[in-house]
Structure formats: structure tokens, C-alpha cells
Amino acid sequence: MGFTKKDKAEKIIEDVLEKPSSRRTFLKGASIAMAAGSAALATGCMPSGDDSSSGEMQLRWQEYFKKHYRLMTQKEKDETVDRLERLAKIQDDIDVQIGTEPPIENVLYGYAFNISRCEGFMECVTACVKENNLDRKTNTQYIRIFEMEPGKLDPSTGDGQFYHKVPVENKFYMGVQCFHCENAPCIKACPTKATWREPDGIVVVDYNWCIGCRYCQAACPYFGRRFNWGKGEVPKEELTTKQHYLGNRKRPMGKMEKCTFCIQRTRKGRLPACVDACPTGSRVFGNLLDPDSEIRYVLKHKKVFRMKENIGTQPKFWYFID
């Protein structure tokens, strides 16, 4: 039942987006004409032999007028990925590999966090920053760890900016990030349909379709979303070059971004960077549709709860205690 309704909704979205829009077709035609014109202009004005700048301009023009990710055919995805890789080479002289791996069949990702094991070492945060090429200048972090008083379960009562030796006696630690809600308010809030739920449950953002209005940030009850204030400055030697179109690729300035369960890793069978880095084993990740998976064991045998369960967002992120 749940699927059919979702499929129907997706169909409607596709219909609306795909309906021949005179504005779109006009812009597209104009873009091709302008690209051709600009390329001609550039080659006409610049000394011959300097192909890179005109090539870059052409690539950027084509990038401006590409489709929404969900409406692209695989060929169009490959083309935009190729353009992005070439642009990264021209602009920053780095070789990146951007993937467009589709969701895996019969997989629904789920996450569990053990609040009685986490000791606040923050290894997950550094691993996440590195893996997802987060802006070092504004110190963007997808994960926050709160130092909590016993008996309190609301992170707003905790200390999110601790820096002292951990663990502290009689405190516990609680990690917060994007919970990838099944019924996500951010998706409903987005006016351009730039954020959606993938079939494997990951809520993703099309960075090129996002207009940076931040409605989704206001809609998220968990403070899971981050706004890209800067250009995303990452030291070249620290850059993660294995990327995904919907994941850790270079985000333009002024776009929303957030945890994607490390889509560039998880769709290839790997664990997210935070799980890989956790020294205490507080983080459990796996396939909710696999009855033998670790996450299913936790849901079946442990005392679990989700944050703000009463508001009906259905997060796929559970907290549990030993």
C-alpha cells in the first residue's frame, strides 16, 4: 500500500516536470545558441591554442541547463558526470570519479545509535568531514554529539560544544544527524523538488536543482540540514575523490546539503564513514529488509526509541540502550 501511493506521487511529479514547458524549451534552445555563440566568441577573441578556457565555458553552459537528476536518462547522467569530472580537472586540477550508482534492490537503509556506548570521542565527526568534503572554512559538520545529563533525552538540553577529556562520569553522549525520515517534512517543504527520498530510503539533494531558499532547513525538526555558505574549501590533499552525484561531490555555493548515509560508500556495500570510524561500536548500520542484519537484531532485541516520534516523521534512525 505504502509503495503504490508513493509511486503514484512520483508519477505525478514526473508528469508535471516533464510536461513540455515553453519556458524550459525556450531556455534550452537559447542556451545552446548562447553556448555556441560564446564558444565562437571565445575562440574568435582568444589566441589560438588556449582551448581550456573556452572548453570550460562550454562545459559550464551545458551544466547550467541540465535536467533534474530524476528525469535524466542514464546517458544524460553519464554526460553530466563526465562534464563535472572535466571541470574539476580544468578548474582545480584534480581527478575525481563521480558515480551515479542506482539504489540496490530490496535494500532499505537503517541506522541505530547506542547511547550507552558512545563516549563522545567525536571520531565520527572528523571522518564525516573528510569523507564528505565538508567546507573547512565555515567548519560545517553533519553530525553533532551532545553531552547529556542522565535522564534527559532531548539534545537541546545537552551540551553540543564540549571540549574536554571524555567520557565524563555520569554523562552520556547522543549523536544527531539527518534521520532520513520516511515521511520527511523537508521533502514537502522544498519548492523545487530538489530533495527527495530514494527507493533505498536515503533522502538526497540535487545540488543543481536546489535554489538555496532553506525552507527545508526550517522544516526539519531535527536540525539535520546544513546550508553551504561558502564555496566548500577543502585542502587538495584531503579531498575524497571517490564521489557520488547525490553525495560528496563539489557543491556550488548557496546550496543545502546534509548527511546522505555516505551514499557514495553505502551503494557499493561499504559502511558509512561515521560507522567505520567509531572506536566504540556505538553505530549500527544495515539493511532493514534483511532479517539477519545487525540493524534488525537491534530493533528486535534492544530497547529502542526515535527522536520526536510523536510528530510522525518516521525517522530511520533509532537510539538504543544496552
Binding site: E119, F121, Q161, K165, V166, W229
Partner: peptide, 23 residues
């Protein structure tokens, strides 16, 4: 792999990083 069998509890230490206020 994770616990030192002779001293299994993790030692106290400084966190790997710190957080700044949200934007």
C-alpha cells in the same frame, strides 16, 4: 581488536574535534 584485554576500558582522552554553533 578494540579492547586491550589487560585493560579493557577505553582511556579518557580529548575528543578528535569540537563543534561550532549551527548556522
Amino acid at each position: 581488536s578494540c579492547h586491550n584485554p589487560h585493560s579493557p576500558r577505553f582511556e579518557k582522552r580529548f575528543p578528535a574535534t569540537y563543534s561550532v554553533p549551527l548556522n
